[in-house]
Simulated scan of single mutants.
Amino acid sequence: MPDLHVGLLYGGQSAEHDVSILSAKNVRAALGDRHRVTAIYITRDGRWLVGDSARLGADTEAGTAATFTPEGGASTVSASGLGALGLDVVFPVLHGHNGEDGTIQGFLHTLGIPFVGPDVLASAACMDKVVAKRILEAAGIPGTPYAVVHAHGERPSFETLTQRLTPPLFVKPANSGSSVGITRVTEAGALSEAFDVAFRYDKTVLVEQGVSGREIEVAVLGNERPEASVPGEIVLTSEYYDYDSKYEDPDASRMEVPADLHDDVAERIREVAVEAYAALGCEGLSRVDFFVTGGGDVLVNEINTIPGFTARSMYPVMWEQTGRPFPDVVDELIRLALARHERDRQRKTTR
């Protein structure tokens, strides 16, 4: 691949701002000096800062931010001015709202700039857990039992929910990630506060039945012919895989990659991961999360279109254990972005 001008887009106005910075640091390291990299940092208040050869993660703004080397400096740019930077491709490392939900993807698409990861529709569908579940159901791909609650509607009681769903219940915003806003509910008295927490992050809340099983994840990579990595397992020492378990408490969970699964089960999980990826129209990359029950059921939990790339994230580790070092994966993601852009550019737009 020739030397390219890569825009590394991170930060963002989302509850996962800090995770985005950690992910961007790892992506920047994986890009190395093979390409020219311009860091584009979106502050919590929506300002866009641009600089060459960024050093990420200095404590200069509300706990986390970006600093730039003296020779590059740091300058503010309007979002609409992004096209003037002469970027060959953008690598978005924006988790959650305003980054993983199709908004940035639509903006880059409108500017005509190639970008890593799924396009607008797949990003939006996967970000909305309710929409994703309904699409997977229509495709015949099994998932966890659930109920949907809207902010403008009546909140169901614990008794009503448990007529359909077996506790523990997990109450979560339909549009969020990194386990932000999720509460585990085992008794009626905790349900109201769980709804209050979830509705802080979205107008739609998903209530899922807790599944007794193993938490298995698979990394998927590709456009028209996607491939799946070896599965990995999240082994918990905490009650469930919450934000602290993922990013802040190294003793709350551990990764086992590859997961200790029978070959037939591992292959089935990889097949379903690719099926779910295709059903939702994903391209570039995604991480597909599963529950595998003691009875052998393989249930899709959710799909993350911009999974974490931190030192504690499964996506790069699973590819590493599949035989693809992270720098190779990053280069392949850029290649896939450029190939899709060229394919779509050939699409006829006149009668």
Rank of each mutant, 00 (worst) to 15 (best):
R155L: 11
M127S: 00
V130C: 01
S78N: 10
G63L: 12
T67W: 13
V120P: 03
T64S: 14
D52L: 08
G181I: 02
P70N: 11
D52A: 13
L108T: 09
L111F: 11
I104W: 02
A174L: 00
N175K: 00
F107T: 06
T64V: 15
L136Y: 09
G181M: 03
F91G: 03
E71P: 02
F107L: 13
N98M: 09
E61S: 13
D128T: 00
V148C: 04
A65V: 02
T64L: 15
F91L: 07
G106E: 03
R164N: 14
F107E: 06
P156D: 08
F115N: 05
H97R: 13
E100W: 01
A151T: 05
M127C: 01
F115V: 10
V171I: 12
A62V: 10
A124M: 02
A122W: 03
P92H: 09
F91D: 04
T67K: 08
G140T: 09
L56P: 02
G117D: 09
S157Y: 04
P168G: 05
P114M: 11
G143K: 03
T76W: 03
K129R: 11
L94C: 10
V185H: 04
R55V: 13
A139P: 07
D59S: 14
L111P: 12
I182M: 09
A151I: 06
A147L: 05
K133M: 08
T60N: 15
A66K: 01
L121T: 13
T162M: 11
G99Y: 01
A138V: 06
S123Y: 08
T110A: 15
V90F: 08
A139K: 06
S53F: 04
E154R: 14
E100D: 08
P156W: 02
G57W: 09
A62S: 14
V148R: 00
F158I: 04
V131I: 14
K133F: 09
A65E: 12
A139L: 10
P167S: 05
P142A: 15
T64N: 09
R184W: 05
I182H: 03
V116Q: 07
T162I: 04
G117F: 09
G153F: 01
S80A: 15
G177Y: 00
A139G: 10
V148D: 01
G153S: 14
V116S: 06
S53M: 05
T67P: 02
T160A: 15
L87Y: 07
N98Y: 11
P167L: 07
F68Y: 14
V120Q: 08
T67I: 13
L161H: 02
P118V: 05
L165T: 02
A84T: 14
R55A: 14
Y146A: 13
V89P: 10
G106A: 12
G72A: 12
F158W: 14
D128R: 00
H150I: 00
T144W: 03
V93T: 08
V171F: 07
P145D: 13
D52M: 06
V185Q: 06
T144G: 02
V77I: 14
R184F: 06
